[in-house]
């Protein structure tokens, strides 16, 4: 009987928004499966980075090593067969996760880092700041996305970025950096628009008015109050955009604008298009399946996330 008051407290407290959403999410088996796939991919990538950091001598890092004759079909020695130099397609596929996921990750970070603050500022301050930001993103969004991304990738390639003022010195933009910069710099528009709209709604709510009346500064209100309250939008957008970034890497690689010194799924598909007419289907298939699985998992998980965090939200 001693426990009774505690029980009551629990009931009164209810569950927080996040706990509630996560609970809903956890009940979806498919979403959990998808999450497991995503986690596995991330684990591979993190493992590769860690192994590189500590210079471990493991097979994946030696993707460039010849393991058998050229163009061996899948067999017990080489699960996904070998490529034109007799290298393991399996190792390349795993290693390829590093480039593809790194690209998608940084592109997402860049687009959020630009889109969220700009959207919040536009929605919160309105007036002139809003006009400028809206003008900027309307302009960008009126240029067809694929052209914009290609244009950025093309002009950024082989450029060096002068970051002396940051104390970093000159940074050469090669391969992978060009790709995620091009994608990131062009894809912040949607998230910016979304955040702006949401912030405008929240701005009139009591908790913001209260914060203002306490004399909180604008930046405090934006970062401590507004952004946490629209954070679920950021997560949803992040998970759904990730997929399109992985696919964008494939197209950029095909056009010769991607990472070249390390295998990426895009580069593998690009190389394998030459092999396919001969009937060497395994490299193509391995890369396609790798992309397929992560995209599927992200899509399924993103949908589930959206449904549980914000059932009313429509994201195409």
């Amino acid at each position: 009987m001693n426990n009774a008051p505690e029980k009551i407290t629990v009931i009164i407290k209810g569950r927080s928004y996040w706990a509630d959403s996560m609970g809903r999410l956890r009940r979806r088996k498919l979403a959990m499966g998808a999450l497991a796939v995503i986690a596995a991919y991330l684990a591979i990538v993190l493992f590769i980075y860690a192994a590189q950091w500590t210079s471990l001598d493991i097979p994946i890092l030696n993707w460039g090593q010849k393991i058998g004759a050229e163009y061996q079909p899948p067999s017990r020695n080489a699960i996904f067969g070998t490529d034109f130099l007799g290298r393991s397609v399996f190792r390349k596929t795993l290693y390829g996760a590093r480039v593809s996921i790194t690209v998608a990750f940084w592109a997402s970070i860049i687009s959020l880092a630009i889109g969220v603050p700009l959207g919040a500022a536009a929605g919160y301050f309105r007036g002139f700041i809003d006009d400028v930001i809206v003008w900027l993103y309307t302009t960008l969004s009126s240029i067809p996305y694929i052209l914009l991304i290609l244009a950025f990738a093309l002009v950024l390639r082989e450029k060096s970025l002068n970051l002396k003022w940051l104390g970093v010195g000159k940074v050469e933009l090669s391969g992978i950096a060009t790709v995620y910069l091009a994608i990131g710099l062009t894809s912040w528009v949607d998230i910016c628009r979304l955040i702006r709209g949401e912030v405008m709604k929240h701005k009139e709510r009591d908790y913001i008015l209260a914060a203002q009346s306490y004399g909180c500064g604008s930046s405090r209100i934006i970062f401590r109050h507004l952004i946490p309250n629209v954070f679920h939008l950021i997560i949803i957008s992040f998970s759904l955009r990730f997929v399109s970034f992985i696919q964008a890497e494939v197209i950029l690689s095909f056009l010769g604008l991607g990472e070249k010194n390390n295998p990426s799924w895009g580069a593998m598909i690009d190389a394998a298009r030459l092999d396919l007419p001969k009937g060497y289907w395994w490299e193509m298939t391995a890369a396609t399946v790798a992309i397929f699985l992560i995209s599927l998992a992200l899509n399924v998980f993103g949908d589930a996330l959206r449904d549980s965090l914000d059932p009313k939200l429509k994201v195409q």
Binding site: G64, K66, F84, L85, G256, L257, K260, N261, A267, D270, A271, R273, L274
Partner: peptide
């Protein structure tokens, strides 16, 4: 920059690394 050049590049890299030369393509 296309796939064929990458194949050449990867081949040379393999040759150089065998004799301990560090060559970036």
């Amino acid at each position: 920059t296309d796939a064929v050049f990458r194949q050449y590049g990867e081949f040379f890299k393999l040759c150089f690394s065998k004799v301990g030369l560090d060559v970036e393509i």
